[in-house]
Nucleic acid binder design. Structure first.
Lengths: 173, 173
DNA sequence: TTGCCTCTATCTATCAGTTGATAGGCTGGC
DNA sequence: GCCAGCCTATCAACTGATAGATAGAGGCAA
């Protein structure tokens, strides 16, 4: 791990990569331990249960996303910012963590599921925070977030970043 | 299982429910066997490997979907039909199989991944088959399919079928 | 300074349960 | 007699999780 990074952060980084690629059942304590260079028991020291880990992961992910989006809610610029967030993921063929976990939400620990649900709400509310949201956006906030999430999901499944661009084109018209 | 149903069909039915709820890593041979009332070795008799099973599952799922959609490609009616397909899933809080598998596509057997990718292509192409697709549809086919997939994903994650309706409203305007 | 104590973070070793998969046996219908 | 379709039994690998030992850093009293 890069110097200055705590072990806890390194675990979360490894978990984020694996969870976004393979979902909640797609990573194990042993894999994360190997990624970081420690033993699986040490991962349990930092995150007693897998649900604890996933919860911390979702919290950090939501905070990072909202930080990236910033406080500027002016409609045209805000939309571009939100698009940029998903585009970044599409270009790396990485799912949104919320989508990666939410797709198998029926066998997630309840706390993790509700945390994933909270993420999409946060994005929708962030869009609604624009003073003239309804009027200035090309589509309603719920539609925009659903479209971005779906475009990313299909683009990752097909491993074709250009599908993402094609699907979201109406957002820029 | 209902009479007249073959064991093979019963296995696929059980697998579809579980896969749509929990993804590729969210069901096991033993669970399916218990659902059907046989032993796990018998499941292997019908589907030697898990990849075989998932592949057969995706094939049947795509065939069922295209059958439901039918051959009527006239734009307004076709769109309503496609919406109905996803609405049915949303009302039952069931993911689309394509989305459920695709979300963790990075650790899917390659054949299964490409089969999932193929599904969304099939829907897009089905929409494009309308003689006046571009002109008569409110949004481009890629956008419509991505929106439906994303709206379903978030609606299932949040367990709120009304979110689905809110997100896809622009399709009916 | 020396000795001891405590806390943090890691380790080794192990647990019971589950996983996908295989080998080989039984049985009833054609 | 054959064989489709199911069974029992078993395998090695992996899972999340726990118990308990160890090493080192820092404080603190004699």
């Amino acid at each position: 791990m890069p110097s200055g990074e705590t072990v806890r952060e390194a675990i979360l980084n490894a978990a984020e990569v694996r969870a976004r690629a393979a979902g909640y059942n797609g990573f194990s304590f042993r894999e994360l331990a190997a990624d970081v260079g420690i033993k699986s028991a040490s991962v349990h020291y930092h995150f007693p249960t897998k649900a604890d880990l996933a919860l911390a992961l979702m919290d950090r992910y939501r905070a990072k996303a909202l930080d990236f989006l910033g406080e500027q809610h002016d409609a045209p610029a805000a939309l571009e910012r939100l698009i940029a967030l998903f585009r970044l993921a599409a270009m790396q063929s990485e799912m949104c963590l919320c989508g990666a976990l939410g797709a198998s939400s029926q066998d997630l620990p309840p706390a993790v599921q509700s945390s994933a649900a909270q993420f999409s709400d946060a994005l929708v509310n962030w869009l609604y925070a624009a003073p003239d949201a309804k009027a200035a956006l090309p589509l309603p906030p719920e539609t925009i977030v659903a479209l971005l999430e779906g475009a990313l999901l299909l683009s990752v499944t097909k491993q074709r970043a250009d599908f993402f661009e094609a699907a979201i084109r109406p957002l820029s018209a």
